[in-house]
């Protein structure tokens, strides 16, 4: 799991300390929250620089509301994830479709090992298939099957019930399997 589920009280306490002007709490919170937020933004945007912008924006919003944070209202990480998801969704809506990048080459120009190419091809294919999913299905699959968040937390982030999360993720997986079925050989599954 991206965030420690048992650490919610600790995060709220750290946020309260931050609101009182504790610099050490700021550093600890960044260390706890930023990696998960950045990872989620990278998955949703597929762009490292944009993901960093979103992470910064989301954290700035957290610092801004810190003095008014009510303990027990929500998990700090869940609140932050929700902001990240909303910011990423806004950015994706504003985006123009871009051509899919070519496979990266080795720095020294020599051919990449077959395994590396295969892995890269799989990640690209999965990324494209995820991009083609309806927004909520994509969010559910990314948060549950890649980021490893629990269904209740995803429900809180998306504002839907746990059953709805399960349904979204199941439909998303079904669509991914259908979409990627035609690329079995390319993905190295032809021997299966």
């Amino acid at each position: 799991m991206a965030f420690d589920a048992g650490g919610q009280d600790a995060e709220a306490a750290l946020l309260a300390r931050y609101a009182q002007g504790d610099r050490a709490a700021a550093a600890i919170l960044v260390g706890r929250l930023a990696p998960g937020a950045l990872s989620l933004a990278r998955r949703l945007l597929g762009d490292g620089a944009e993901a960093e912008d979103v992470t910064q924006e989301a954290l700035l919003r957290l610092w801004k509301i810190a003095p008014d944070w009510e303990t027990g209202r929500a998990k700090v990480s869940t609140w932050l994830y929700r902001v990240v998801v909303n910011l990423c969704t806004d950015r994706r809506r504003r985006r123009r479709p871009e051509p899919v990048a070519d496979l990266p080459e080795q720095a020294d120009g020599s051919p990449a090992p077959v395994e590396h190419l295969q892995m890269q091809a799989r990640l690209n294919a999965l990324g494209e298939a995820l991009d083609a999913l309806p927004e909520r299905q994509r969010l559910a699959v990314v948060m549950r099957d890649i980021e490893g968040l629990a269904n209740p937390e995803i429900g809180a982030i998306l504002g839907v019930s746990v059953e709805a999360v399960e349904s979204l993720a199941a439909r998303g997986r079904r669509a991914l399997k259908a979409r990627l079925g035609g690329r079995r050989s390319e993905l190295g599954f032809d021997d299966d």
């Binding site: 999965l126 099957d145 997986r173 259908a178 035609g182 079995r184 993905l187």
Partner: peptide
């Protein structure tokens, strides 16, 4: 092959990657 979807273990392998 085009008509045949991936199996669950195949998709899980991709997601694990």
């Amino acid at each position: 092959e085009r008509d045949q979807p991936l199996t669950d273990p195949m998709l899980d392998e991709l997601l694990a990657a």
